[in-house]
Amino acid sequence: MISKRVGIVESIVDQSNGLDDIRVSLNGEIQRAYNYTKMTGKINVGDEVVLNTTAVELSLGTGGYHFVIANLNNLESNLTEGGHIMKLRYTPFQVKVDSVEEQESVYHEKIDKFESLENMPVVVGTLHSMLTPFVASYKKNNPNKKLVYIMTDGAALPIYLSKNVDTLKSKGLIDSTITIGNAFGGDYECINIYTALITAKEILNADCVFVSMGPGIAGTGTKYGFTGIEQGPILDAIKKLNGNPIAIPRISFADKRDRHVGISHHSITVFKDIVNVGVNIPITNYEEEKLKLIKTQIENNNLDENHIIRFINNNSTKEDLDYFGLKVRSMGRNYDQDKEFFDAASSAAYYVMEVCDGSRRKDY
Results as ranks from 00 to 15, higher is better:
residue 115 E to R: 13
residue 83 G to T: 01
residue 264 S to N: 13
residue 22 I to S: 12
residue 270 V to C: 02
residue 112 D to Y: 00
residue 14 D to N: 14
residue 330 S to M: 09
residue 24 V to C: 05
residue 92 P to N: 06
residue 309 I to M: 09
residue 351 Y to N: 04
residue 285 N to F: 02
residue 279 V to G: 10
residue 231 Q to A: 03
residue 28 G to A: 12
residue 80 T to D: 09
residue 364 Y to I: 15
residue 358 G to K: 12
residue 69 I to W: 05
residue 350 Y to A: 06
residue 8 I to L: 06
residue 2 I to T: 15
residue 230 E to H: 05
residue 305 E to Y: 10
residue 318 K to E: 15
residue 46 G to R: 08
residue 349 A to M: 07
residue 60 L to C: 10
residue 106 V to F: 02
residue 241 L to D: 13
residue 20 D to T: 02
residue 250 R to T: 11
residue 225 G to Q: 06
residue 141 N to I: 10
residue 157 L to V: 11
residue 240 K to S: 11
residue 146 K to M: 00
residue 210 F to Q: 13
residue 104 E to L: 14
residue 132 T to I: 03
residue 247 A to P: 00
residue 199 T to L: 00
residue 299 E to V: 07
residue 86 M to R: 09
residue 161 L to D: 14
residue 361 R to M: 04
residue 250 R to A: 09
residue 144 N to I: 00
residue 364 Y to A: 04
residue 340 E to D: 10
residue 117 L to Q: 11
residue 36 Y to M: 14
residue 351 Y to G: 02
residue 74 N to E: 10
residue 40 T to L: 01
residue 315 N to H: 13
residue 249 P to F: 04
residue 83 G to P: 06
residue 325 G to M: 07
residue 254 A to G: 08
residue 347 S to H: 10
residue 203 I to K: 09
residue 126 T to L: 00
residue 346 S to F: 02
residue 166 D to Q: 14
residue 336 D to Y: 04
residue 118 E to N: 15
residue 273 D to I: 03
residue 151 M to A: 06
residue 71 N to V: 02
residue 46 G to Q: 10
residue 48 E to S: 12
residue 187 D to T: 09
residue 227 T to K: 05
residue 147 L to W: 05
residue 123 V to M: 06
residue 277 V to C: 13
residue 96 K to L: 08
residue 23 R to Q: 15
residue 233 P to F: 07
residue 127 L to D: 12
residue 214 G to W: 07
residue 322 D to R: 10
residue 197 L to T: 09
residue 170 S to V: 11
residue 173 L to F: 07
residue 245 P to D: 06
residue 327 K to E: 15
residue 103 Q to P: 15
residue 281 I to Q: 02
residue 301 N to V: 01
residue 364 Y to W: 14
residue 283 I to W: 02
residue 133 P to K: 00
residue 255 D to R: 05
residue 19 L to I: 15
residue 85 I to K: 05
residue 352 V to D: 11
residue 195 T to G: 06
residue 25 S to E: 12
residue 246 I to N: 00
residue 168 L to D: 14
residue 57 E to R: 08
residue 342 F to D: 13
residue 28 G to D: 14
residue 162 S to Y: 05
residue 22 I to R: 13
residue 184 F to C: 10
residue 250 R to K: 12
residue 284 T to F: 04
residue 8 I to P: 13
residue 191 I to R: 04
residue 204 L to K: 13
residue 339 K to L: 08
residue 258 D to E: 14
residue 361 R to F: 01
residue 127 L to Q: 04
residue 251 I to F: 12
residue 168 L to W: 09
residue 39 M to H: 14
residue 288 E to I: 07
residue 152 T to C: 04
residue 345 A to Q: 01
residue 36 Y to E: 14
residue 73 N to R: 02
residue 344 A to S: 15
residue 357 D to P: 15
residue 63 G to T: 10
residue 7 G to A: 08
residue 181 G to P: 08
residue 346 S to Y: 04
residue 161 L to S: 13
residue 71 N to Q: 04
residue 138 Y to N: 11
residue 212 S to N: 12
residue 5 R to V: 09
residue 257 R to W: 08
residue 285 N to A: 02
residue 307 H to N: 11
residue 363 D to H: 07
residue 189 E to P: 13
residue 237 A to F: 07
residue 302 N to V: 03
residue 222 T to C: 00
residue 348 A to D: 00
residue 125 G to R: 03
residue 331 M to C: 05
